[in-house]
Amino acid sequence: MARFKFLVAALAAASLWAPGASATVLDNVKQRGVLNCGTDNTAPGFGYLNTKTGKIEGLDADFCRAMAAAVLGDASKVNFVIVTDKSRFNALQTGQADVVFAHTTVKPVRESAIGIDFLPINFYDGTGMMVKSASGVKSVAELDGATVCTTQGSGTEATLAAFVRARGFKTTKVLTFENLEKLFGALQSDRCNAMSTDKSALAAWRGNSGKPDDYTILPETLNKSPFAGFVIANDSRWRNLLRWATFALFQAEEWDINSANLADRMKDESAFVQKFLGAKDGFGKDFGVADDFVASMIKSVGNYGEIYDRNLGPKTPYFIDRAGTPNAMWTKGGAEYSPPWN
């Protein structure tokens, strides 16, 4: 048994060691000329296949494209490695993916025990509530005395119980259902006044219901489930590049630099903006990529706001309002924040 444990430990160590054997992922990617980016293909709004165009779309997929544009100067030089909740960490550890964007919640054990480093948070998910629009409910404060439903044995159940206690709702009932499908069915049939689960999942069920306008996702978020991309641990050169590439997407939104006005902004009067975009003497060289890597990203996928609106904005079926949530820019009271670029 002891020997067996040793074998397992050796295997685990080897799994962490193997990709580290090569100097940095950055060199591998540049040599290969293609970024292997892990993403889901069945997550509405985050990573899914557009059957008309045959392209993978979604917030996560656009982050893959942005990273390919940053590293290789071309957003099309991305190879989507399809991962699932089960395989996403192993795909990275075994070197099959250079970076993974797969609606993954940032949690301490994932960095301490699994051997990955998270990139900046690019979407703040969390438990939310969805009601029928006809009910006229606009805020969770109005749910006193209502029947609120969720799935059995999920973390949401505990969140919901704490929420009901904290608000001092006396007559609010919490019902649980076996799975999301039954849960949504219960909301449709008015057995529940509100259904509660992760907001991204609420948006997907609302969008896929056929009549999205019949349902409203309430603005409040009851707990935290921030999503971020991640790379293999102990490769700071690679991680720092992608970290700042992600920040650049936030900064571009803050400075209102988008894919439409990029050409004008390259000639901006502000020296900070010119340096940021790499029009002259940019940041790229020291990160080991082209000086105008930020401009490449904006040109192909746009700033963070454009990416968000394309996939989760009001014109999509999976609309998740940014206003009043951490997904808003910090200038608007949200948490999307880039350290300064100067």
């Binding site: 069945t42 969008g207 999976y318």
Partner: peptide, 15 residues
């Protein structure tokens, strides 16, 4: 089976 699920994740095929 997964291809079917992939199709359902596309908003064009919602519902």
């Amino acid at each position: 089976l997964r291809a079917g699920q992939m199709i359902l994740a596309d908003p064009q095929n919602s519902g």
